[in-house]
């Protein structure tokens, strides 16, 4: 997804204003000339200048070539590729939500197998590779590196 530079510039200008408004609420440090708000002010000034330049650049390009405000990438017009992105982002959200409840092993196994299958692997291959990968990561991180991967439902099975 490609934005015309004027759109990017507009977003930066909005960001600059948001930074200034938020930073203006930061307190002064007693007895000091400079405080927590000054560096964000400088960054906002930088965003403002770059935003204005990008707006000018984007408008000039649009006048010369008729460039659209937003141009969808090829992948955005292909339902399959759009869903691929949804699957990757969804997998991270599902893992974040489900791993503490279900545990690492079932969550990772199910997510891996479904993602592999969705991306074009055969069922048998997906299930076998997902099982082997889950086991390998569990052993290396949980047993060797002592990372407390969530056990969830598997707690009673692994450590009765």
């Amino acid at each position: 997804m490609r934005f015309n530079n004027a759109v990017l510039g507009g977003l930066l200008l909005a960001g600059a204003i948001a930074i200034v408004v938020t930073a203006s609420g930061f307190p002064n440090v007693p007895g000091q000339q400079f405080g927590p708000r000054h560096f964000p002010y400088l960054i906002a000034a930088g965003f403002g200048v770059c935003g204005a330049l990008l707006v000018a650049q984007g408008l000039a390009t649009r006048r010369a070539t008729g460039e659209a405000w937003v141009r969808l990438g090829d992948w955005m017009t292909s339902p399959r590729h759009l869903l691929n992105v949804g699957v990757v982002l969804g997998a991270m959200l599902v893992y974040w939500w489900a791993a503490p409840v279900l545990g690492f092993i079932p969550t990772a196994f199910i997510l891996l197998a479904l993602m592999m299958r969705w991306l074009g692997a055969g069922w048998l291959g997906a299930v076998c590779v997902a099982a082997a990968t889950t086991a390998m990561i569990h052993i290396s991180f949980y047993s060797w590196l002592r990372v407390s991967l969530p056990l969830g439902l598997m707690r009673d099975v692994l450590y009765p």
Binding site: V88, M92, W96, M115, L119, A121, A126, S148
Partner: peptide
């Protein structure tokens, strides 16, 4: 790639979580 990308994604999630045992890191990563 159908096998590789999901495995890398799982490594990303476990790796980000592992440093502080903090699920918030997964959201930041996303």
């Amino acid at each position: 790639r159908a096998y590789l990308m999901p495995i890398i994604l799982l490594f990303c999630m476990v790796g980000s979580f592992a440093v502080n045992n903090d699920p918030f890191a997964i959201l930041v990563m996303l």
